[in-house]
């Protein structure tokens, strides 16, 4: 009886072409749906006016005013560039324990507000509040 020895030599296993089809589809899916944006959040807690905390003494407030998006900030009737580290750090040092409130005038963008808040934090301001900028009430 003739033996069919050739059959044993044939390669067994999955063919690579369908495998790579599937892998490419998976790769495309993950490439298109993946997001690499480093998302972060800034808390802007909304204070409830009717329930003031009595046991905590309120911090002294200093107001930095953004008048436009030109990179300048108004503080104590003096306009200074946000990048001016010397003047800005002096102001921050003077008001180290105060609550720094940022007030934005009409037309100021969110990016400008964040840039100023970042600069103040970088220079060592401990209490920076951006939540007040979104309040409809004028700062006192």
């Amino acid at each position: 009886m003739p033996l069919n020895l050739e059959q044993t030599k044939r390669k067994t296993g999955i063919s690579l072409t369908p495998l790579i089809d599937v892998v490419f589809i998976l790769l495309l899916f993950f490439m298109l749906t993946s997001s690499f944006v480093p998302w972060r959040i800034v808390d802007t807690p909304l204070a409830i006016a009717s329930s003031p905390t009595k046991d905590v003494t309120p911090l002294e407030r200093v107001v930095f005013t953004l008048e436009s998006n030109d990179g300048y900030v108004l503080f104590e009737n003096k306009t200074v560039a946000i990048d001016n580290q010397h003047q800005m750090s002096e102001w921050v040092k003077q008001n180290k324990d105060a609550l720094v409130v940022i007030h934005a005038k009409e037309g100021v963008t969110l990016q400008s507000l964040m840039t100023l808040a970042d600069q103040l934090k970088k220079l060592g301001a401990a209490h920076v509040s951006i939540a007040n900028a979104f309040s409809s009430m004028e700062p006192k």
Binding site: W39, I41, D43, T44, P45, A104, G107, L113, I130, S135
Partner: peptide, 25 residues
């Protein structure tokens, strides 16, 4: 602009919610 965000914050305040965060990158 901050002005266009003010009414949104006012609405959130009216709904009684206090935990709000702004997304940054």
């Amino acid at each position: 602009t901050i002005d266009s965000l003010k009414p949104i914050f006012a609405e959130i305040r009216k709904s009684g919610l206090t935990k709000v965060s702004i997304a940054t990158q």
